[in-house]
Write a protein that binds this DNA or RNA. Structure first.
Length: 806
RNA sequence: GCGAGCGUGGUGAAAUUGGUAGACACGCUAGACUUAGGAUCUAGUGCCUCGCGGUGUGAGGGUUCGAGUCCCUCCGCUCGCACCA
């Protein structure tokens, strides 16, 4: 008997699938809509480090699922590609002078080799890489569509700046005040930027969440990130006719309790209203605030700071004269950058008022009675007091009543705000898509004509970012200087590039029609496949990629370019794989597992099985090298069975039961992506049948089909050993006969007062009465019931008898 | 602080509608085969106890004939957001 030579087997079948284009897929109209499935993996950034064990986790899951679907008669689109623009290759270029394209192509080669070595059923003819000009031609084209729709605009605003990466960052790319990529504390910098008006789609992105089957946590994160709130804008006139301050509040019911106002230090009215007496103090405070990093400004532990401007405003509801302060706890980017402070009912205002000894006036109470407030009372379900004609009304009723009154008086209106900020879309770096716009002194900003796309990245001599806010492209005069597409006069190209997110915003559409030179994706093919039926990837993209891609897709939908509102119907996040001992895998700790090593030692099939056997797909779990030996032994046992003499006998009843229970379990678990329990059931099957001297064809062949999506190489080899000419990947998934799966005899449990006292083997179709009788006849049961009063007997057919005694 | 999720053996984990807690696997123990074993096979393995039995799913309470599962309170951990008015 030959031993299980996984290396030879795996190379043989990978070569076969590749050469025969086994997994090539076409838009075959004979498949009805419900038998088409688009299963998508988040494509990797091809880093120099190669694949780690976390990558193949999601890829293995989708591969098993796709192979299962194929065997169940589905036409399955399952592509792979590379998110190949990005900073590491560029940073490497700065260090060594190697062109990022060269490094990127080498890394892609390595990634492709590693991914293929796991035997995944991708249609490699659809592979895309975002850094190629035939791909980014369409990234640029889509950018222009958004631009023409008025969603891209140029702005000179303070943005998040990473001094290490020397580029601007979107809000979503700042984590704990640091750069998402390198952790360097983010500073503010005033820069000319291209922005996307994603806020315009706030409601659309929020509502869309209701229609998609995503994990609650990701939906919650997007929900929080968009951060919609409802309230009112209210206008406060300044005391001596100097103008007015508009504020946003979610609690217009507390308007009577506004005892002072606060402006953000950056608010444009600050200089205008500050009186001579307070000029120095205000200037000083503004300078201090500007010097602080975001992290320092938002540090909750630091306490409230601020200065009085000398100005007063008039509370429109009661005519009170209230002081106007500035403080850095008011953000210029949210609402109107100014607030009315209601210290009695807002924690932050309370703290500020206590610090500066400002008046506190209660306007909401628990029961309509005014009591001395010893702490802030922020409850939203109180009763109005000190509120003129609104006294006695419940908070929920006061809010709309006051808004109505404000609107009638023309001093306010209902309004909606979002935490979501517009998307800073330009990067001051080299290795990204050039933004296809031209700056003309007479025509202004002019888009590059679509016929001239792609606008290719020029060669540069230095990849070093200038650090002053211009990309290395700014130094290439012959590229920057161009003629205006509109008037033909001298003009300059936009030198900013797009962020890495651009390419991943639409790659799933390009897979559908990757070679199309006429459009980004043909309408017919798009309609054939979209939406993505299952999308699997890491949770780290919960608000970044997944929000941006949804935004682009919503816009493309509004432009009539795609047929679905939402791109990804179902989303699953695979859990992180930790190092041995439950600590994070990292290069510095030296506990990174390289899939190449695992495949060399145990083979790809074992690697695949172990990745899924570790636990449920979605949970974080530690890698254990010792654990892989379990699945490796299992495959060896399967191999040994396959090399036994084949029996053509009718299978026994026991064999049939073993098989059909296994088919039933695998059908259920594979379709629900519960691979860990599916693998356990296959192990049970082997344990049950391993003792047989010969292998029974009628039960072993269906079993190998069940194994095929999980361990495809060994399954193909065994299928061939069993005498088949066709490959198992194209076989039909077995079906089970319910009748065979049911046991004739079941174990009936007897409890006395809920405690287990006996087990009885009885026919499965036994009646309640027979069960009860047998229970009372049982010696051990008798010893627990003798001399006691029987209160109640509960009998569940096929399960248990519970006798309640006193 | 807010939002989401999770707490089960020495370890990774199982457990349809509430119905034998710990499937499957790792590890461990004993035995078999072997020149050898980090190979293979067999048996055992939640904890306490010689045993009978008791006890056991983060803690406490509740509902129920019966709770890992449902309800309440609390504790701990992970992730995300965090002065968003």
């Amino acid at each position: 008997m030959s031993s299980y030579n996984f290396t030879e087997i795996e190379q043989k079948w990978q070569k076969y699938w590749d050469e025969n284009r086994t997994f090539k897929v076409t838009e075959d109209p004979s498949y009805p809509k419900e038998k088409r499935m688009y299963v998508l993996d988040m494509f990797p950034y091809p880093s120099g480090a190669g694949l780690h064990v976390g990558h193949p986790e999601g890829y293995t899951a989708t591969d098993m699922y796709c192979r299962y679907l194929r065997m169940n008669g589905y036409n399955v689109l399952h592509p792979m590609g590379f998110d190949s623009f990005g900073l590491p290759a560029e940073n490497y270029a700065i260090k060594t002078g190697t062109h990022p394209e060269k490094t990127t192509m080498e890394n892609i080669e390595n990634f492709r080799r590693q991914i293929k070595s796991l035997g995944f059923c991708y249609d490699w003819d659809r592979e895309v890489s975002t850094h190629t000009s035939e791909y980014y031609r369409w990234t640029q084209w889509i950018f222009l569509q958004l631009y023409k729709k008025g969603l891209a605009y140029e702005a000179e605003t303070p943005i998040n700046w990473c001094p290490e990466c020397k580029t601007g960052l979107a809000n979503e790319e700042v984590k704990d005040g640091g750069c998402d990529r390198c952790g360097t504390p983010v500073t503010r910098k005033n820069l000319r930027q291209w922005m996307f008006q994603i806020t315009e789609y706030g409601d659309s992105l929020l509502e869309g969440l209701n229609d998609i089957n995503w994990t609650e946590s990701v939906k919650a994160m997007q929900n929080n990130w968009i951060g919609r709130s409802e309230g009112a804008n209210v206008v406060f006139k300044l005391e001596n006719g100097q103008g007015q301050i508009e504020v946003y509040t979610t609690r217009p019911d507390t308007l009577f309790g506004a005892t002072y106002m606060v402006l953000s230090p950056e608010h444009k009215l600050v200089d205008k209203i500050t009186t001579q007496e307070f000029k120095d103090a205000v200037e000083n405070y503004k300078t201090q605030a500007a010097l602080k990093s975001d992290l320092e400004r938002t540090d909750l532990a630091k306490g409230k700071t601020g200065v009085f401007t000398g100005a007063y405003a008039i509370n429109p509801v009661n005519g009170d004269k209230i002081p106007v302060w500035i403080s850095d706890y008011i953000l210029i980017s949210y609402g109107t950058g100014a607030i009315m402070a209601v210290p009695a009912h807002d924690e932050r205002d309370w703290e500020f008022a206590k610090t500066f000894d400002l008046p506190i006036k209660q306007v909401v109470s628990e029961d309509g009675h005014i009591k001395e407030l010893t702490e802030v009372y922020p409850a939203k379900d109180g009763v109005a007091v000190n509120s003129g004609k609104f006294d006695g009304m419940k908070t929920a009723d006061v809010i709309p009543a006051i808004i109505k009154w404000l609107e009638e008086e023309g001093i306010g209106h209902k309004s909606v705000n979002y935490k979501l900020r517009d998307w800073v879309f330009s990067r001051q770096r080299y290795w990204g898509e050039p933004i296809p716009l031209v700056h003309c002194p007479s025509c202004g900003t002019v888009p590059v004509p679509e016929s001239e796309l792609p606008l290719e990245l020029p060669e540069v001599t230095s990849y070093e970012p200038s650090g002053t806010g211009e990309s290395p492209l700014a130094n290439i005069d012959e590229w920057v200087n161009c003629s205006c597409p509109k008037c033909g006069g001298a003009a300059k190209r936009e030198t900013n590039t797009m962020p890495q997110w651009a390419g991943s915003c639409w790659y799933y559409l390009r897979y559908i029609d990757p070679k199309n030179t006429e459009s980004f994706c043909s309408k017919e093919k798009e309609e054939y496949w979209m939406p993505v039926g299952l999308y699997v990837g890491g949770a780290e993209h919960a608000v970044l990629h997944l929000l941006y891609a949804r935004f682009w897709h919503h816009v493309l939908h509004d432009l009539g370019l795609v047929s679905t509102r939402e791109p990804f119907h179902r989303l699953i996040n695979q859990g992180m794989i930790l190092g041995e001992g439950g600590i994070k895998m990292s290069k510095s700790l030296g506990n990174v597992i390289n899939p190449d090593d695992v495949i060399n030692e145990y083979g790809a099939d074992s690697m695949r099985l172990y990745e899924m056997f570790m636990g449920p797909l979605e949970v974080t779990k530690p890698w254990a090298t010792s654990g892989i030996s379990g699945v490796f032994r299992f495959l060896n046992r399967v191999w040994n069975m396959a090399n036994r003499e084949v029996s053509e006998d009718e299978p026994t009843k026991e064999q049939l039961k073993s098989l059909h229970k296994t088919i039933k379990k695998l059908t259920n678990d594979t379709s629900k992506l519960e691979f860990n329990t599916g693998i356990a059931q296959m192990m049970i099957f082997v344990n049950e049948n391993y003792g047989d001297e010969k292998v029974n064809r009628a039960i072993f062949e269906p079993f190998i089909k069940l194994l095929a999506p999980y361990a495809p190489h060994i399954a193909e080899e065994i299928w061939q050993i069993l005498g088949h000419k066709d490959i198992i990947a194209n076989e039909k998934w077995p079906t089970y006969v319910e009748e065979y799966t049911v046991d004739d005899e079941v174990t009936i449990v007897v409890q006395v007062n809920g405690k287990l006292r006996a087990k009885m083997q009885m026919p499965a179709d036994i009646t309640k009465e027979e069960m009860e009788k047998a229970a009372f006849d049982n010696e051990n049961v008798k010893s627990h019931t003798d001399g006691k009063h029987i209160v109640k007997v509960v009998a569940v057919p096929g399960k248990l008898v519970n006798i309640v005694v006193k």
